[in-house]
C-alpha cells in the first residue's frame, strides 16, 4: 500500500475520538505517474484513505470503512497547489467498536473533501 502518499506534520488531539492533523502531500508519490500522466491530481480515493489513516492515528487503533454515507469532493487537490492541508476528524461511538466518522480536508478558505462514514475497529 502506498505509504508515501502523505506525511503527518502535526496533530492536535485531546482524546482518541477527535482532532486536527496537519498533513503534507508528497508530489513524488508514484500514484501521480498514472493519475494523470502530465496532469498530477490527488486521487479522491487516496484522500479517503488519508482520512482513514488520520482517524487511525487519533484513535490509536486500526479501523476499517464499512459504509460511506456521503463523500463530497468539492475542489481539485494537487500536491503542487495544495502541498499542505488540515484533516479534521471526529469519531462518535454508535455501538461497541463501531463509529460514525465525520471528517474534512481543508486549507485556507477551501474545503477539498467532506466525509461521513461508518467505521469499525479492525
Amino acid at each position: 500500500m502506498m505509504s508515501d502518499y502523505f506525511s503527518i506534520l502535526q496533530c492536535e488531539s485531546e482524546d482518541s475520538l477527535s482532532g486536527i492533523i496537519r498533513i503534507q502531500l508528497n508530489p513524488d508519490c508514484r500514484v501521480y505517474q498514472g493519475h494523470f500522466p502530465k496532469e498530477p491530481v490527488s486521487p479522491g480515493v487516496c484522500n479517503i484513505e488519508m482520512i482513514r489513516c488520520c482517524a487511525e492515528y487519533i484513535h490509536h487503533h486500526p479501523i476499517r470503512i464499512q459504509k460511506i454515507k456521503q463523500c463530497k469532493l468539492t475542489a481539485l487537490m494537487t500536491p503542487q497547489i495544495t502541498p499542505q492541508a488540515n484533516v479534521t476528524i471526529s469519531l462518535q461511538e454508535n455501538e461497541q467498536g463501531v463509529y460514525r466518522l465525520t471528517a474534512s480536508i481543508c486549507e485556507g478558505e477551501t474545503t477539498y473533501m467532506t466525509l461521513k462514514a461508518d467505521v469499525a475497529d479492525e
Binding site: G44, Q66, K67, I68, K69, Q70, C71, L73, L76
Partner: peptide, 13 residues
Amino acid sequence: KLGFIGEIKDCVL
C-alpha cells in the same frame, strides 16, 4: 475525457 469523482453516496463495503 478526464473524469473526476464529485460525490460518493450510500457506499457499502
